[in-house]
């Protein structure tokens, strides 16, 4: 167990990280991600509020759908990345990261008080509910076996309600592994029941270690590594989750960066072998430090080592060869388009 964002979390279950990653890529894995935040935003001004604090659009999101985007400060720095679900015309569910929940709550409350009150209220239900991520190609078959209603036909980034073993479940067709799957929001006293139904159906319990490898293979950023308050979504290559046609906190900086460019950008890179680049290791070109690693791991799915990091803009092209200072040993790495892994399309 490790401390993570104020919660005690398992890095791995008995299967071990490599077996857990394989389970998610080939079959089904189940993660207790109850440490992540759950916030409801409600009221006639909730849509306007979210349009003001999110890089993505709430007003164009249809009821029943979900969207991934960033919460930025005035300088365009990323306070958090999040998925939010539109529950009704004037009610939303938003999922911040565990370690950022209090920062997001404070930030939201500030803007509600300043611009959207009365008319928008926030409710934090993190500690009274649980969140289970159910991920992998096998989830489609299993979810229909365990849930009272068929769910395998749900569209990606949609949500619905169902029941498992008598427990009401809010089901999102979302995830953070690069695999197909679902995220299940349940009342706190139903978490064990739903978890057990999934593990009894053969799903492998997976910890934070596997989750980190999976998201890295899928090229997904982790706040505190690839993105933080001093990094913008443009630098992080997340411009497809940023609107440039609405006014919101940080919009001016992001628009300027999109039009005029940035000095450094996030890249993916691979290196042969299994020795992993770790956060903070320097990336060099002809002996000169031109960037640093933000995340890295051995990738069991690709059987090579992979990493992400920030480098000066002129080194971001795919196939650029850079040097990595691996604890004093210099090894060559190849800049690679993200993601490293894309799941096979179903036929």
């Amino acid at each position: 167990m490790v401390e993570f964002g104020g919660w005690d979390m398992p890095v791995q279950y008995p299967a071990g990280i490599l077996a857990e990653v394989k389970a998610v890529r080939k079959a089904t894995g189940v993660f207790d991600v109850s440490h992540m935040g759950r916030l409801y935003l409600s009221g006639p001004k909730a849509t306007d509020f979210l349009d003001w604090v999110l890089t993505g659009s709430a007003s164009t999101l249809r009821v029943g759908r979900a969207r991934y985007c960033m919460i930025c400060n005035e300088k365009g720095g990323v306070i958090d990345d999040t998925i939010f679900y539109r529950l009704s015309e004037d009610r939303y569910l938003l999922i911040p990261n565990a370690g950022n929940r209090s920062a997001v709550v404070a930030w939201f409350q500030r803007w509600i008080d300043e611009k959207f009150s009365p008319g928008c209220t926030m409710e934090d239900v993190t500690v009274t509910t649980g969140l289970i991520a159910f991920q992998g190609p096998g989830t489609l078959e299993t979810i229909d076996q365990v849930a009272d209603t068929p769910l395998s036909g749900m569209r990606p980034f949609s949500w619905t309600e169902s029941a498992i073993q008598g427990a009401t479940v809010f089901v999102g067709r979302t995830g953070y592994t690069g695999e197909d799957g679902f995220e299940l929001l349940v009342q706190g006293n139903d978490v064990v029941k739903v978890w057990t139904a999934l593990t009894d159906s053969g799903s492998v319990p997976c910890g934070l270690g596997a989750r980190d490898v999976l998201r890295l293979e899928a090229g997904l950023p982790l706040h505190g590594h690839e993105i933080d308050e001093k990094t913008t979504p443009i630098e992080a290559g997340l411009d497809r989750f940023v609107r440039f046609d609405k006014d919101y906190v940080g919009a001016a900086v992001l628009k300027d960066q999109q039009e005029n460019g940035v000095q450094r950008r996030l890249v993916g890179f691979t290196l042969p072998g299994r020795s992993a680049p770790r956060a903070g290791y320097n990336l060099l070109h002809q002996g000169e430090t031109i960037g640093a690693v933000t995340s890295g791991s051995y990738s069991p799915t690709l059987d090579t080592s992979i990493g992400m990091g920030y480098v000066l803009e002129r080194y971001v092209e795919s196939d650029t060869v850079l040097d990595l200072d691996l604890r004093g040993r210099i090894v060559q790495v190849n800049v690679t388009a993200l993601p490293f892994y894309t799941r096979p399309r179903r036929t």
């Binding site: 890095v11 791995q12 071990g16 990280i17 490599l18 077996a19 270690g209 072998g273 299994r274 020795s275 992993a276 051995y298």
Partner: peptide, 8 residues
């Protein structure tokens, strides 16, 4: 350590 991937 968990799953070992590399020795030097």
């Amino acid at each position: 350590l968990g799953d070992i991937v590399f020795f030097e």
